[in-house]
Amino acid sequence: MNELLKGNFQTKNQVTDSPAKEETLEDRFEREAKKRLGGSIAYVSKKKVMWDLKNEKK
């Protein structure tokens, strides 16, 4: 049953809900820190570190 789309007709294809990903401790921390961002509250979003460390180390 399509629960995500609400409308007055039936879509051709059903939309199935993807199961919620289990939140890691790291995700939870970054989410909480983001809510309180400002002043001394700053953080590194580890998955977004894009620096080419190999080149930096040369």
């Binding site: 001394s40 509250i41 590194v44 979003s45 977004k48 570190v49 894009m50 620096w51």
Partner: peptide
């Protein structure tokens, strides 16, 4: 900030 993934609202 962009490259290092830093999320900050500066003092």
């Amino acid at each position: 900030w962009d490259k290092l993934g830093i999320v900050v609202k500066p003092f």
